[in-house]
Structures are given as C-alpha cells and as structure tokens.
Write a protein that binds this DNA or RNA. Sequence first.
DNA 1: AAGCGTATCAACCGCGACCGT
DNA 2: CACGGTCGCGGTTGATACGCT
Length: 273
Amino acid sequence: MGRPPCCDKGGVKKGPWTPEEDLMLVSYIQEHGAGNWRAVPSNTGLMRCSKSCRLRWTNYLRPGIKRGSFTEQEEKLIIHLQALLGNRWAAIASYLPERTDNDIKNYWNTRLKKKLTKAQDGTERGSNHHRSMIKGQWERRLQTDIHTAKQALRDALSLDEEKPLPNGDLHPILFKPNHAPSSSTNNVVYASSTENISRLLQGWMRSKPDKTRACSDSGSSQGSVRCESVSSREEGKPLSWLETWLFEESTGQDQEMTLDGLQLPLDYPTEFL
DNA sequence: AAGCGTATCAACCGCGACCGT
DNA sequence: CACGGTCGCGGTTGATACGCT
C-alpha cells in the first residue's frame, strides 16, 4: 500500500547518483547483501529513499549487467517475448539476465516499437488481424500467469531443490586488493567512477556461480519468479524452446510476428497453450 | 558556431502485490 | 479480515547527447 514514507520526507536527494553515493551503496550491499532496502538509507547515510537505492542497484550497479547496444539476437528475443508476454518487462528480462528490465523497456519504447511500427506500415493493415492479436495477447498473458503460479507452487513444494543465495550476497573477494585499483588499501577501495565499481564487481562475477547472478536482484516472492526462469534456463527449460525458436529463425525463414499465427517450436511448453 | 529538434537512458512516480501483525 | 509497511513493476519524465540545418 502506498509509497514508502521515506520518499515523502524532505531532504531526500533526487537526480543522478554520484560515484561516491554509488560506492557507499555498493559497499553496504557488499557487507549486508541486497534487500531490506528500507534500512539502506539510514545505515549508509545516503540521503536517498529506499526505492532509489534499490533502483540504482538493480538497474546500474548490480553485477552482470551488460551495457551497450543490443545484439540482433537479443532484439529478436525481446520482440518475441513482448509479443508473447506483453509489456511485462521484468518477465522478459528474466530471459536476458544481463539486461535490466529498465533497459529492455527503454530499448523497446525508443527503438523497437518504432521499428516494428515502421515495418507494420509496410505490410497490410488488417484491423481484424490486429484485434485478434490483442485478444491472443491477453489470453496468453493469462495462461502465463497460471503457468507462473503453477511453477511457484512447484518450487514451494520441492524440498530438495537448492535455494538460491540471497540477493546481492556479495563475496568478500570482490573487494580484495587483487580486484581493486592500485590505490586501494585494506579493503578500502576507492572508486572514482561507476566504471571502477563495475570493474570491481566483475571480479565477483567471475567467482560466483551463475545461479547466484541470475537471482541477484530480487529477494521477494515476485523476484522468485525471475530466479525460477533463469535457473531453469540452466537446466535447459523453459528457455530451450526459445533458443531453438530463435536459432531456427536466425538460420532460416522469417516468421510472421503474430500470436494467432504464431509458429511455435515442438517443445513449446503446453501449459502456455 | 549557434540554434533547434530528436534520441537515449537514468531516474522518478504511482500503483498493486505481498507479507507480517 | 483489516491494516500498515515494504517491495517490485510499468509508465513517464527530464537531463543530456547527438545530429541536422
């Protein structure tokens, strides 16, 4: 309910983050792990609201984030997933663990949407077709929700399944001198820029199992969905069909981007249908 | 070089979901 | 069940970069 009270308080800093603020946040998360965002501003001395801290971490400071332009395969995957899931950027981002939902959302809104609109203008403007597409989108979204709920239930009931590590459970090695700039001493690392911080975090990334990275930005029940998707990827499900799909497309013919006429791979999960 | 329009992306806002009491 | 606190998501905004005239 409502916004966190901290965001309403006066004296809360807004706008771009400084490298010093980034360092404070990263240092705190290194020590305590991500989560309990409410406590972050008071414990770090940051004049930011908890929400801002969480956002900065998940969208920018979190290790494993790939920056720069999207590859053609990533682009295709986003287009497919958007058609399949709608504007559920967090769900889409779970299939692209190196990209944040914010990045994907921005990329979609600023480029892909225009690109697709332009492409669509070139083709027939079948309004009936469009209507059925929207209907299909809604239905599929509902089916996906059911699937997600089922999966969550399965996860909850499977006792022997390995629990993911807590969010941002940063290994101390991250700030060991061999990963730090030469100016650092006794684990006190000076980072003059976010690039420095990223470089520091890369050391951690190399030392962590993939599963941890996949679950690194969320500890809530909602986040567990994200973890499920990514960890499942390592087992070859459910991403395998997407990969197959993309692979087939990239090596073969262009398939029409519609939902009703969507051509799905043979191993497409039946729960979605 | 200056002015203007457009593109990009980090950050904010508001809302709903979840959880503990 | 109701309520309040917290978190995460999706939409939107605003600052900056970039390109064009």
